[in-house]
């Protein structure tokens, strides 16, 4: 029993969100405005992602929620509990078992398949926001494909740091048309965005939904003489030894001791279980 409608939102709201999602899928990378609802959590905690997830969930789904790659951090735990309570769906921590994955700031290391949905929480959907503060102007720039300004940002990076120092929320061009903010995922994850799963982006406070359909071309912007590079810390994981996964740097004591561990906890745990067996 539950006093909530399935997945918290009422059916009309979910239909409205689904319409926005369909439009987003039809125009990859385009930010579709939608009537974002107030959710029982603060803005910045994933209100956009939660609404998109709520609109996508069916009672048979297996939900996985990750925050910075981890299944056990506050944001992930509270959103997972939220849907356990309001939708009574099964939840999982295993990437391969999940049908819907809501994520904040990471793409799972394990490649996703065609039967999966990846939902991103997006704080600021507008990639041009900090370069051009006027929303009317940025919309015009999107519609006229005037994206020179995006390269001004990258130019500034190189001029100041000698290389493109933008390490997260690295702008991409989707299907040769819209420039899109991939949400604050590390640029290490950018190449993974050309994947088999459908990717949906929800920005609750900014009231925007956008999407990347499966197998869509996603190109990270760069200069000819300063090509895009998917960077990560130059270490193996201290727990599982993986050399191909994105690492978190963890300070372990007051003497400057540190270790690098996989940010994707499920990937790391899976590898260690395999090694132990």
């Amino acid at each position: 029993m539950s006093d909530y409608n399935f997945a918290y939102l009422d059916e009309q709201t979910k239909r409205m969100i689904r319409r926005a999602i369909l439009k987003g899928v039809a125009i990859p990378g385009y930010q579709v405005p939608f009537a974002s609802r107030e959710m029982p959590m603060p803005y910045g905690w994933g209100t956009g992602g939660v609404q998109v997830t709520a609109a996508c969930l069916t009672p048979d789904d297996q939900l996985k929620v990750i925050d910075q790659g981890a299944d056990d951090t506050t944001n992930a735990v509270s959103i997972r509990k939220f849907f356990e309570k309001t939708a009574e769906v099964a939840t999982t921590e295993h990437t391969s078992e999940a049908t819907v994955i809501q994520t904040r700031h990471r793409i799972p290391e394990e490649p996703l398949g065609e039967d999966q949905i990846l939902v991103y929480q997006v704080p600021i959907p507008e990639p041009l926001r900090f370069l051009e503060p006027r929303e009317t102007e940025t919309r015009k720039m999107h519609s006229l494909e005037e994206y020179g300004l995006m390269h001004v940002k990258l130019y500034e990076d190189i001029a100041r740091h000698g290389h493109i120092a933008t390490a997260y929320a690295y702008p991409v061009r989707v299907e040769g048309r819209y420039v899109m903010d991939p949400s604050p995922i590390p640029k290490f994850d950018n190449p993974k965005m050309e994947m088999a799963a459908i990717q949906l982006f929800g920005a609750g406070r900014e009231q925007r939904i956008y999407a990347i359909p499966p197998y869509t071309q996603v190109v990270s912007l760069d200069f000819e003489d300063h090509p895009f590079e998917a960077s990560k810390a130059d270490h193996p994981c201290a727990l599982c030894g993986a050399e191909d996964s994105y690492l978190d740097e963890v300070i372990v004591d007051d003497a400057g001791g540190r270790m690098f561990v996989c940010s994707d906890t499920d990937y790391c745990a899976g590898r260690r279980a395999g090694q132990a067996a």
Partner: peptide, 19 residues
Amino acid sequence: VSAGGNVGERLMAVGARHY
């Protein structure tokens, strides 16, 4: 934006992609 970026903006707006 730096002086160089200011001058370069128009170039990038018309498609220059070589830093």
